[in-house]
């Protein structure tokens, strides 16, 4: 089946099997291997990407469901993602790094939806992402730092 999927602002037309999962489409067809397959059962969130600005688990979405939709992955060059990535580096928000692409995409989603996300809001919205190394403290710190930086940059540009 022919699909037309916008990934990170670039349109891809591909002939794929309907049973192909979105995460496999990204990794195997487009060679965008930043999006990880973790549990493969929609529990861990390592495969989180945005579809039309909303975070989804790409291991439980068929690529054909993304036909004519916009997908944003960890490879996107959105400057806000750079701020988040740097915050994860600064605050040691990762250890083995396997969950990190999903964590960063969910962070992006959280901060896009709530400029004033407090700790409770962040925790509630990070429920779909598992990390087996950090104990989450440094991830929370990274998200808060990214949030502060984004606010700072907005007020500077004003």
């Amino acid at each position: 089946m022919m699909v037309n999927i916008d990934v990170n602002g670039k349109e891809y037309k591909k002939d794929i099997e309907p049973r192909m999962l979105l995460v496999s489409f990204l990794r195997d067809e487009l060679n965008l291997t930043g999006t990880h397959i973790g549990c493969d059962t929609s529990n861990c969130g390592a495969c989180t990407v945005l579809m039309d600005g909303k975070s989804i688990k790409s291991c439980t979405v068929l690529a054909v469901q993304a036909n004519n939709h916009k997908i944003t992955t960890i490879e996107s060059d959105d400057p806000k993602l750079d701020v988040i990535k740097q915050a994860y580096v600064d605050e040691n928000g990762l250890q083995c790094g396997f969950c990190t692409p999903g964590m960063i995409m969910q962070t992006f989603y959280i901060l896009e939806n709530n400029e004033n996300a407090d700790e409770e809001y962040i925790k509630k919205n990070l429920r779909g992402n598992l990390c087996r190394c950090t104990g989450y403290k440094s991830i929370l710190d990274s998200i808060k730092k990214a949030e502060e930086k984004m606010k700072g940059e907005i007020s500077v540009s004003k």
Binding site: S42, G45, T48, S55, I56, T60, Q106, R127, G128
Partner: peptide
């Protein structure tokens, strides 16, 4: 229901 990503789909 479930988590934010699942609720979005």
């Amino acid at each position: 229901v479930a988590d934010p990503q699942v609720r979005n789909m």
